[in-house]
Amino acid sequence: MTRWGITIPFTGMPLAAHRELVEELPDLGYTDVWSAETAGTDAFSPLLLASQWAPQLRLGTAIVPVYTRGPGLLAMSAATLAECAPGRFVLGIGTSSPVIVQGWNAAEFAEPFGRTRDTLRFLRAALAGQKVTEDYPTFSVSKFRLERPPEQAPPIMLAALRPGMLKLAAREADGAITNWLSPADVRTVRSVIGPDLELAARIFVCPTEDAESARALGRLLISSYLTVPVYAEFHNWLGREEVLAPMHALWAAGDRKAANEVIPDEVVDDLIVHGSPAACREKIQSYVDNGLTTPVIALLPTGDDPAEQVRALAPRR
């Protein structure tokens, strides 16, 4: 084990109440905390708190959408966190989804590959302290310069699911971030990005021995996520087109309940880690054994104390 990350904040725990547990994470063997940005906390604030609570941890965003902040504001937010956690912050960016970008943030979800590429190139220049005036193919910036460029520019990782974006990450970024994959799927992703690039993945973990409850929750998540077109295409590429076709057909027909019911147990068990804490740790390690650099646990709610679950899922040292 080299890295062992976890997603913050935890469901059902107020942000300010995270301090004691976050302070404990390094002693438990965790190396990283990563945030997300959908409709809960923003991606930067939990990491800013963690940077002061546990200075040993590496901090990462997985991910910040490239559409929901202007390029300059995104650079400012990243520079602020990089200043508070010099050498310990990783900026993960990606396209997000039309629901989040258009439906919730009133932005146009256009040219996702190009917008991500152009944002990456802008951020490289801006976070290096350069004055940027550039007509990128998807946006233009005039005379932008950070007033407080970080002494050490953070690495930038790209959210990537299929070969086009994975190859962009391998060419121009410092790593790739993915999710919703099995341990065996890691090898498929590795075949595109090569052996050396950092690969992080959010792994959904439900630490309970009640397999039916874990699978019921897993089915709800799978039908919600994998019916999003980009994830549907990802799993087609990974080889699940036929096994997930009944779910897609029922979802498209508006029968959400039946769509959940036809997801096979083996798909749930591939994509959702569940079982005893020891079994969960073993499954997470199998991702690493297949080529994952940085596993990032996303703790799913079981009704038990999340702090105790975090402690139970800590790597054996």
Rank of each mutant, 00 (worst) to 15 (best):
T2N: 14
I6R: 05
T7D: 02
F10G: 03
T11Y: 13
L15K: 02
A17R: 08
H18W: 01
D27P: 03
T38E: 06
T41C: 14
F44H: 07
A54I: 08
L57V: 07
R58Y: 05
L59E: 00
V66L: 04
T68M: 03
L73W: 07
L74H: 06
M76G: 08
A79P: 02
A79D: 02
A82P: 01
R88A: 05
G94S: 00
S96R: 00
A106T: 09
A107M: 11
A107L: 09
E111M: 12
E111S: 11
R115T: 14
R121H: 14
R124V: 06
T138Q: 11
R145Y: 05
P155R: 07
L158I: 15
A160D: 10
M165S: 14
A170S: 15
A170I: 04
G175K: 02
I177R: 07
T178M: 06
N179D: 12
A184G: 06
V192D: 00
R202P: 00
V205L: 09
R215G: 14
L221G: 13
S223C: 09
W237V: 06
R240S: 12
A253T: 02
A253I: 03
G254H: 10
R256A: 11
A259Q: 06
D269K: 06
L271F: 07
G275F: 10
S276W: 10
C280N: 09
C280F: 12
Q285M: 11
S286M: 08
S286N: 14
S286W: 08
I297M: 06
D304E: 13
P306D: 07
L313I: 01
A314G: 10
